[in-house]
């Protein structure tokens, strides 16, 4: 009686390549980017480097800083190859070299917390000058905004799928909402909320939610509508109430769509939190970036950028891990 129950063909993960073979392409890409970065540092910083060299007594051409100002960066590089040794170690570079960024990263995280006067070792609390502290501030707003955005997105999607009126009224506004540049809108949100006495975490979370609800709405509407006509007919033959169709068919069908949306949404939440920190200098990676640009500390900006990028990667990875777990538990992934 038993027919063969062979496992699904797609059981082998990804490309089917062994794990170690996936490393060289990634590593190669990173090395190539670093090489481009190091090369770009030279023309980007050439004017400051030549000025410093001139002060140190090195002959540079042309000798006048005024003449150099109007010249192209590459022309200066080609005319003064002998005076460029300090390109990768200048104090206030326009573009810091990667190792300068890494040093800044180390200084403002591990070194600050371990050895700084206000670090966690000496004071017992995270230093407000450390990126760890600022990353946590941003992360707080990101999570709260993501939570609000995801719930709002799912709620709106359920409404849109079940109500023609909502489908026609909400969806266009959701789309329009995403066409307004968030940098323009964020200060308005903060000002308006401040005027009604709301400040601190909430305004940042609102901006996060504003960015993150949209991918969830779009993905969930598609996911909730993904059951085909036959599956809907089956539910009709049971005279299933709308709530049963939602919980037993539409929601489970939408799970893969939901996770795809959540990955976009959490990255958008992080962006929203950072943008929300720009106008309010009260901590967070966004505040750090703006402070760095006020004081010409480009390495500080880059260090904050790296932390933000690493956070985004970590958050998306966490959602992907949750997705794998969930789909496996649902039996939809071997």
């Amino acid at each position: 009686m038993a027919e063969a129950s062979d496992p699904k063909a797609g059981a082998t993960a990804g490309t089917g390549w062994p794990r170690w073979l996936r490393l060289p392409p990634v590593l190669g890409m990173v090395l190539a980017l670093l090489a481009i970065w190091y090369v770009a540092v030279v023309p980007m910083n050439v004017k400051e480097v030549l000025t410093a060299a001139e002060r140190a007594g090195v002959e540079v051409s042309p000798p006048s800083a005024v003449d150099r100002r109007d010249m192209g960066n590459w022309a200066l590089v080609l005319r003064n190859p002998h005076a460029l040794g300090d390109s990768w170690s200048s104090d206030r570079p326009k573009l810091p070299a990667p190792h300068q960024v890494l040093v800044e990263l180390y200084d403002s995280t591990i070194d600050e917390e371990l050895n700084g006067r206000r670090g966690i070792v000496r004071s017992g609390t995270l230093s407000n000058r450390s990126l760890v502290y600022h990353a946590l501030v941003t992360l707080n707003a990101t999570f709260l905004g993501f939570l609000i955005g995801a719930l709002l997105g799912v709620g709106l999607a359920v409404g849109i799928v079940h109500s023609r009126v909502m489908d026609m009224s909400v969806m266009p506004w959701a789309i329009v909402s995403q066409t307004i540049p968030i940098v323009a809108l964020a200060p308005m949100i903060i000002v308006v909320l401040y005027s009604i006495g709301v400040q601190g975490l909430i305004p940042k979370a609102v901006i996060s939610a504003y960015l993150s609800f949209f991918p969830v709405v779009v993905g969930m509407v598609k996911g909730l509508r993904s059951p085909d006509a036959m599956q809907m007919d089956l539910m009709r033959t049971y005279s299933a109430p709308t709530a049963s169709v939602l919980t037993k068919l539409r929601l489970p069908s939408s799970i893969p769509y939901l996770f795809a949306s959540l990955k976009i949404a959490i990255a958008a939440s992080l962006v929203g939190a950072i943008v929300g920190e720009l106008p309010v200098q009260k901590g967070g990676l966004g505040a750090r970036m703006l402070a760095g640009s006020y004081y010409g500390q480009t390495a500080q900006i880059w260090a904050a950028l790296l932390v933000a990028a690493a956070l985004a990667a970590l958050l998306v990875y966490a959602i992907a891990a949750l997705e794998r777990r969930t789909l496996r538990r649902m039996g939809m992934m071997p």
């Binding site: 036959m230 599956q231 007919d233 089956l234 033959t237 068919l249 489970p252 799970i255 649902m330 039996g331 939809m332």
Partner: peptide, 11 residues
């Protein structure tokens, strides 16, 4: 009612 496809829920 039995349809042409089994239409079992994969989850």
């Amino acid at each position: 009612y039995v349809f042409q496809a089994a239409g079992l829920y994969p989850w």
